[in-house]
Design a binder for these strands. Structure first.
Length: 464
RNA sequence: GGCGGCAUAGCCAAGUGGUAAGGCAGCGGUCUGCAAAACCGCAAUUCGUCGGUUCGACUCCGACUGCCGCCUCCA
């Protein structure tokens, strides 16, 4: 079945065809590990996970690479700020390396909680320094670089297709610049490939290079890593929408200048999460929410957030609020109950997947990952005239893409001892027809975050 | 100032030329000791405003209004 994806390069939905038949190289921009990921960041990783799962669903072998930026990402623009890692280290009184390690682990935990498939290759920027230096060398030989007092820079005026991704008007951009310029730069858009360690101070992260001791520029790592692990010409590169104008634009410039070939065929970007009032989530906005403090702290399953993200298309800003999480929580619980309903008949045994609904579902997700509509297809299927067995098989097939762990529902019944006791007591009370006590116990169970379902087969208690 | 995006029921949100998916909340019903869960049914004569094109527009064009993103660190 044909797969259509929106390509930021052409600003159109295009049919996707990998360079090598049957296999896809996927590169997703990872985090800068100087702080926790917030749920806005996480939205992008969920979008990328859906993309990857859709590729797999369509039968492609996917090789997925994600970078960990642990050096070189500056706090200010114009290549003049502090390194975020060193700043994080100073803030927390730890070494930059400890900071990187700590937040990398935290990030990976978040992805696990959200059931995001791990990439095949994790790469740290600091593990590819030789490759990055080699790339600068190539650019130097080809005449794309120039030195300044603080580093080696890429001359963007020498790369003719510089705006092919951003579609920006550089003249206009220059006029509107409201940031102080680095006077040694030849063009406002030039960027650092290598930064020298500051005079007289010792950085925690620094390396020798042909140009002097220092560290690589932020954009360089992604070029070096993706080429190292995926080759010079690649299929799909993703990231947040904010990366279009600078980060990805610079990656394209340095990569294509170095290889003379077009870099990635598809560029895909996820839209932001915004909170009530329409603001994006960011540290600087003071509305920074992590998975932990937005959901887990309130005893809400992180998969609720995953489910919530399916309700808005990835290219549209997603509204976040307590109400939206509550709606998603109820929505997921409903879906889980629907699946439980068709599981109880003991029909877990394989039945064939409904071809009609599978086609419909496949067609929908293949239309630029239209998850909101896919969710509607699922409801349509669950409310159709299919047998429970077929519904079960079909929804499990869909869950390969959804990743909501719907197959684990039956085994998810382990109740805490306190709840078990209440359940046993309520069972007894009901046998004794002592409904006052029974209702009282039901309220207690629900207060602990569980839902009581009395079915003809007995009492069912599930986590909300 | 430049570039781009968005505006659809109480809330969230698909659809993008042929007469409005789905979810949450709500209401009615079946079931139940009562609830809950599940299931069945109901909910926008209408898609920010004003014009235009068309047999026909939420969908195309223009203007306007409001909101947002990037051009500063950023997913």
């Amino acid at each position: 079945m044909k797969l259509y994806l929106y390509n930021s390069l052409t600003r159109k939905k295009q049919q996707f065809e990998p360079i090598k038949s049957g296999a896809v190289g996927l590169y997703t921009c990872g985090p800068t590990v100087y702080n926790y990921a917030h749920i806005g960041n996480l939205r992008t990783y969920i979008f990328e996970d859906i993309l990857k799962r859709v590729l797999i669903y369509n039968g492609y072998a996917v090789k997925h690479v994600m970078n960990i930026t642990d050096v070189g990402h500056l706090t200010g623009d114009r290549d003049m700020g502090e390194d975020k890692m060193e700043a994080g280290a100073a803030r927390e009184g730890k070494s930059a390396w400890d900071i990187a390690e700590y937040y990398t682990r935290s990030f990976k935990q978040d992805l696990e909680q959200l059931n995001v498939l791990a990439p095949d290759v994790w790469v740290k920027a600091t593990d590819t320094i030789p490759e990055q230096i080699a790339l600068i060398r190539t650019l130097e030989e080809k005449g794309y670089t120039y030195p300044t007092s603080d580093g080696i820079y890429f001359d963007t005026s020498k790369f003719k297709d510089y705006t092919k991704l951003s579609h920006q008007d550089l003249e206009a951009l220059r006029e509107g610049a409201r940031v102080e310029r680095n006077p040694e730069k030849r063009n406002a858009t030039d960027f650092a490939l290598w930064k020298f360690s500051p005079q007289g101070s010792k950085r925690q992260m620094e390396w020798d290079s042909p140009w002097g001791v220092g560290f690589p520029g932020w954009h360089l790592e992604c070029s070096a890593m993706s080429m190292k692990f995926l080759g010079e010409q690649l299929d799909i590169h993703c990231g947040g929408t904010d990366h279009i104008d600078v980060h990805h634009t610079n990656e394209i410039a340095q990569s294509e200048a170095a290889t003379g070939k077009s870099f990635f065929n598809f560029w895909m970007h996820g839209a932001f999460l915004i909170i009530q009032g329409g603001k994006k989530m960011a540290k600087s906005e003071g509305n920074f929410l992590t998975l932990e403090n937005a959901l887990m702290k309130n005893d809400i399953n992180p998969l609720v957030y995953r489910f919530a993200s399916f309700l808005t298309h990835y290219r549209k800003p997603m509204e976040y609020s307590d109400e939206s999480i509550e709606a998603a929580r109820n929505g997921l619980l409903h879906l889980q109950n629907q699946v439980r309903q068709i599981t109880t008949a003991g029909v877990e045994a394989q039945s064939s997947v409904s071809a009609e609904f599978q086609n419909k579902f496949n067609e929908t997700i293949n239309d630029d990952l239209n998850m909101p509509r896919a969710m509607a297809v699922i409801q349509e299927m669950l409310k159709s005239k299919l047998s429970d067995a077929r519904k079960y098989s079909t929804v499990m097939d869909f869950d390969r893409v959804l990743g909501l762990q719907l197959d684990q529902l039956a085994h998810d019944q382990a109740l805490p001892e306190a709840v078990q006791k209440l359940v046993a007591a309520r069972l007894q009370a009901r046998q004794d027809k002592d409904f006052a006590t029974s209702d009282q116990l039901r309220a207690e169970i629900e207060a602990l975050g569980y839902q009581v379902q009395d079915t003809p087969d007995g009492m069912n208690v599930v986590k909300k």
